[in-house]
Design a protein around this nucleic acid. Structure first.
Lengths: 325, 325
DNA sequence: CACTTAAAAGGGACCGGTCCCATATCGCTA
DNA sequence: TAGCGATATGGGACCGGTCCCTTTTAAGTG
């Protein structure tokens, strides 16, 4: 009937009648039933958001920002979490459910590095989808925002060199950080700083860890590797936590930060400007990332046939006193 | 038709026919359409989760835990955020939308202290709802989990007294923390420790603040109030951030923590066991809170006519070195 | 004023389930 | 074997919209 035209906005209705409909429906507190709408037409005003693991500050903060933005566009956002890394099947099942529920679009956090994701990508392709990827140059058949973490390492390395450090090193878990280590080392080489085995300090804590475990791991590795004197004058870490642990260890050795060792963290989570010394870090650019995701998804909804878009967000070095001057 | 019976589980079907239906539907990859189901029956398998402001670590972590649990029960969770404190209208509008979409239940974070919430409560009552409340003894007509923060303050005060501190004080934003201050002071009095004006150090930073602003505020207030010697030997704070700022200030004055001042934070966010001195704090009991919410909501869905339930979660003092011994 | 043409309004099938009720099936007793 | 009740199955209206197509209305033209 005509009422449908008024509320959906498609099809011609005379101004006079439209006003009458609106008036009457307001009287009766009528609003279209979203379920019926979804069943008949295809617009459910529902979006899905699926995350590999939300228990991660980047993930959760980002999620909240995205939810907030998408809400602003009038969507209802359904959140799903696949915290078990191993369970690819669960991820797929959730996507299937999204499909059944006729969600209009999906925001997915995905590790495109992992070749096993292809079955997920297949399903994802059925929606207008925007993927947050941590991959390095992989072509997925959907829109993606790429979190380029390496820029943080490059900028830190450059800062170290520029401020006269002779022997910068980098520390972190090896498995997931190799590309960042490479970027760091390459930058040093580009500035004629020799890269040795000792330039990379590998940590071996598990993917899910307590602060206590992290602390023990950092102290153990540093103590084992450098029982006497430390052969470096600048340390880049893959997280702020690691950086704080390292600083505590340096202090326990009587080393001053940044005079004797410069330290830079990664992520810029919190407390960095509160504690002493204020910790230099790398800003994750959450706001930009969230905006990029939203824009990509909204554009895709408007123009489904656009070729896949790619948006790179470069994370940025933030100077604070721990980096020295 | 019979298929509906098989999938919905209500109504009698012979085993033979049931097997046949399942077999065939598997062949055709058939699964019931949730939208149609919601439209006809009333079970949408949708839950709503509405938060006053998610940009808050307690809120976001809690939300993630709850989403995770509820997912486990086969629900799809819709997340909504009303970050603007002032906008009560928005909250109500979102609840109306939940209603229209026939959500089966709602988890709501709400500040029951605020008398203006009654219109929200009215709407909330239409659903099976579980409310996370920060209120002190208010009776709402729905299930609630009450986050009892005061226990943390009471336990800290008791610890201070027991460990021989003579002049403990408490610090924080006045507006929202008065009940906690009261609990702290009352505990001191119960142990015959005199409470003076100086026992409460009020901070005046805004509800939304940067780390920088917080730091400045703490330093300014401490410096202004205690230009010479500090008249206390133990400090309880309303957040870990405040505690770290205070510790930094004490260090700048040459005071040792915990020897000359014991310090306890609140929230036990992160880094507390990594940094020096390890910071005593109060655990927010997120896991318990999330479980309580889930249980309450699931029970309510099963038995809608149960009288409103109330579950109190007591936050708990966590000893670490900064509290002294 | 008759005649074309476009815009506005309404009719009815359909989306894919659930639910009430009528009918079919079956075993059991009298 | 007719009669009965309980369980199984199928029919049809309905939930509340959208969309295609037809009919009505209004405006524009020779």
């Amino acid at each position: 009937m005509t009422v449908s035209r008024v509320f959906s906005g498609r099809g011609p209705v005379s101004d006079e009648l439209r006003k009458k409909v609106i008036l009457i429906s307001r009287e009766h507190e009528y609003t279209p039933n979203p379920l019926a709408r979804g069943l008949a037409g295809q617009r459910t005003q529902n979006l899905g958001l699926i995350w590999w693991h939300m228990h991660d500050m980047l993930a959760s903060e980002l999620m909240i920002k995205i939810v907030n933005h998408l809400q602003g566009f009038g969507f209802v956002v359904n959140v799903a979490d696949c915290s078990c890394w191993a369970e690819k099947a669960r991820y797929t099942r959730i996507l299937e459910d999204f499909d059944r529920r006729r969600f209009e679009g999906v925001v997915a956090q995905l590790d495109l590095e992992n070749p096993g994701e292809s079955s997920i990508l297949d399903r994802l392709r059925r929606f207008p989808a925007a993927v947050i990827a941590t991959a390095y140059g992989i072509d997925a058949p959907c829109d993606q925002v790429i979190l380029e973490r390496r820029t943080g390492f490059i900028e830190a390395a450059e800062y170290f060199v520029a401020s006269g450090r002779k022997t910068p090193v980098v520390m972190g878990r090896h498995e997931i950080n190799q590309p960042k280590f490479d970027a760091f080392c390459r930058t040093l080489q580009n500035h004629n700083v020799p890269v040795k085995d000792a330039t990379i300090i590998e940590l071996d804590y598990p993917p899910l860890y307590t602060d206590e475990e992290l602390r023990t791991c950092v102290w153990r590795n540093l103590t084992r590797r450098f029982p006497q004197k430390i052969p470096f004058d600048a340390l880049m870490c893959t997280s702020d936590q690691e950086a704080w642990c390292a600083i505590a260890w340096f202090h326990s050795r009587g080393l001053r930060v940044p005079q004797e060792v410069a330290v830079v963290g990664f992520g810029d989570y919190m407390y960095n400007s509160i504690l002493t010394p204020p910790l230099a870090s790398v800003d994750r650019r959450l706001e930009q990332t969230a905006c990029a995701i939203d824009t990509l998804l909204m554009n895709r909804l408007k123009q489904p046939d656009l070729p896949p878009q790619k948006h790179v967000v470069n994370m940025k070095f933030i100077w604070r006193e721990s980096a020295g001057s």
